[in-house]
Amino acid sequence: MSMSTLAAFEAGRAALGVPDGSADGRFQSDGQTWVLTARGEYAGATVELTAYADTDRVESRGGGS
């Protein structure tokens, strides 16, 4: 499942019961895009969530590193 905002990512993660600590963030596109991914189990299947955000949007909200 691919998501276009971090808020959508968090809503999807919570709805599917994917644990908070399973998320991993990284940068791509020469540091212009922040990518957040998480994996978990739902209804017997492995699910992977992915969210993308412009780096300036993440930094303005206190996220990223």
Results as ranks from 00 to 15, higher is better:
M1H: 04
M1A: 04
S2W: 13
M3I: 10
S4E: 11
L6S: 06
A7R: 14
A8H: 07
A8G: 04
A8F: 06
E10R: 11
E10Q: 15
E10N: 09
E10G: 10
A11N: 10
A11V: 14
G12Y: 03
R13S: 07
A14Q: 00
A15I: 03
L16N: 08
G17K: 10
G17V: 04
G17I: 01
V18W: 00
P19D: 02
S22K: 03
S22N: 10
S22C: 05
A23G: 00
G25M: 07
S29F: 15
S29G: 12
G31S: 03
G31C: 06
G31I: 00
Q32G: 00
T33Q: 07
T33G: 10
V35Q: 01
L36H: 03
L36A: 01
L36Y: 05
T37Q: 11
T37D: 10
R39P: 08
R39C: 11
G40S: 01
G40T: 05
E41V: 12
Y42R: 07
Y42F: 05
A43T: 10
A43V: 05
G44T: 10
A45V: 05
A45H: 01
A45Q: 07
T46N: 11
E48G: 00
E48H: 05
A51I: 03
Y52I: 02
Y52Q: 08
Y52L: 04
D54C: 04
D54Y: 08
T55F: 07
T55Q: 10
T55S: 13
D56C: 09
R57Q: 14
R57P: 09
V58G: 00
E59K: 12
E59H: 12
E59A: 12
S60L: 14
S60I: 11
S60T: 14
R61M: 13
R61L: 13
G62T: 03
G64L: 13
G64Q: 13
G64H: 15
S65K: 13
S65D: 14
